[in-house]
Write a protein that binds this DNA or RNA. Structure first.
Length: 202
DNA sequence: GTATGGATTGTC
DNA sequence: ACAATCCATACT
């Protein structure tokens, strides 16, 4: 399957956020791999967005990767417990990224189940299955994404995206989640998800 | 050095 | 409704 190239990410952040829906996220580690379908995203645009870590192009050790070239991973720890995965967008010098808020498991699901619940997939109940990857922290746990992935090239060979299947999907647009502090930016319609997909965050 | 709070989740 | 849990950031 064709990989998304760096040029895909070198564009308007909200266009990238919308178009990432339905794409497949591939992670290779050793002889194992996982595939999941992106079903929910949010755009963050440092130059104008009070919800972004890099608001007003604030450059710190943490936000540095967002100022670099597009197609790299920005991974940060939230609430002292969970990691969140973003893909850097727009040209180097801009500080913008797309937060991957939810994915649908496709392959390597046994590993996801173990990482998330220390149980095999057949031991999971209905609720646990629907909670495998239905949130930004959940999907990082399931996919084994951590601080070591920060700054990784997502156009390389160990973590990358493909065009996936060409299934139709309807895109829903909404306000972003859990950014109550962001004043006027709380109302920006920069969250996108696939309508009726069961793995969209709750 | 100290203080503050968060792009979340699971449980109560 | 709220605790868990800790690091990045801002301030002294």
């Amino acid at each position: 399957m064709n990989k998304l190239t760096r040029e895909f990410y070198n564009r308007d952040t909200l266009d990238v956020a919308k178009e990432l829906l339905g794409k497949h996220l591939i992670i290779i580690e050793g002889n194992k791999s996982s595939t999941s379908k992106i079903v929910e995203t949010e755009g963050y645009i440092g130059s104008i967005d009070k919800a972004a870590h890099s608001y007003q192009n604030k450059r710190t050790p943490r936000t540095e990767v967002m100022f670099g070239p597009p197609g790299y991973a920005y991974v940060y720890l939230i609430y002292g417990m969970y990691y969140c995965l973003n893909i850097v967008t727009e040209a180097a010098g801009e500080s913008a990224a797309v937060l991957i808020r939810a994915v649908e498991p496709i392959s390597g699901v046994e590993e996801m189940s173990i990482r998330r619940y220390k149980k095999t997939i057949d031991q999971l109940n209905r609720k646990e299955i629907s909670n495998l990857t239905s949130g930004p922290g959940k999907l990082c746990m399931a996919l084994g994404i951590n601080k070591s992935h920060n700054g990784m090239d997502m156009c390389g060979d160990s973590i990358y995206l493909t065009y996936g299947s060409d299934e139709e999907h309807e895109i829903v647009t909404s306000k972003r989640i859990n950014i109550d502090y962001a004043e006027e930016a709380v109302d920006y319609p920069w969250r996108f998800y696939i309508k009726d997909n069961p793995f969209v965050s709750k």
